[in-house]
């Protein structure tokens, strides 16, 4: 996506509103993997775009805009989710969970297969599921995943290797029908 410092003084908002729309969809989809509370998701997007606006002159590099917006969104969302959790349950050490339900399972897959698929996904940690999402759905590099999940690049490789290990358990079964591809590229 093209990005330049928006010449908004002239009142031309169309580039900026397009950028906002594009990322709203992306971040909304990402945020929904952790929570069904769409208000918190929307607030987080508001927050990070306000910060973005204030710093737009500094944030002028196309290469890093994508991972900058995703990682600051994740940080803000997690902080707000933790805060909300603390108020309602007084739980201190809460980590948002990348929900298992968001993996797609093919309908025509036999019950046996569905079950073992679900088990494989379930056996992953929330971070492993998230890493798979960022790598294979968002198509991000290990460097980007590391910066978004706030871990070392080495750590990102490690998380991915472990998640794929767990999925490999599924290998003996007919592979082509285990997962289904639904990714849209723009």
């Amino acid at each position: 996506m093209d990005y330049k410092v928006f010449n908004i003084k002239d009142g031309d908002l169309s580039d900026y509103s397009r950028l906002y729309t594009y990322y709203f969809k992306k971040l909304y989809n990402y945020g929904r993997k952790f929570t069904s509370d769409t208000n918190i998701i929307e607030d987080s997007i508001q927050d990070i775009f306000l910060t973005f606006w204030k710093n737009k002159e500094q944030l002028s590099s196309v290469e890093t805009l994508n991972s900058y917006l995703i990682s600051s969104f994740r940080y803000t969302l997690f902080r707000q989710l933790k805060k909300a959790k603390k108020i309602t349950t007084e739980q201190e050490s809460y980590e948002p969970d990348f929900s298992v339900e968001h993996f797609i399972i093919r309908k025509e897959m036999g019950e046996e297969l569905q079950k073992s698929f679900r088990n494989a996904i379930q056996s992953l940690t929330a971070r492993q599921r998230e890493a798979i999402f960022l790598r294979f759905y968002e198509g991000l590099s290990y460097d980007e995943i590391a910066s978004i999940m706030n871990i070392s690049v080495k750590g990102a490789y490690k998380i991915m290797a472990r998640s794929l290990d767990a999925l490999k358990e599924m290998l003996p079964i007919q592979l082509a029908v285990i997962f289904i591809l639904l990714k849209y590229h723009d």
Binding site: K25, N29, K33
Partner: peptide, 9 residues
């Protein structure tokens, strides 16, 4: 074939 549900606002 790894896929996820899409949540569209």
């Amino acid at each position: 074939n790894i896929a996820f549900k899409e949540d569209v606002p």
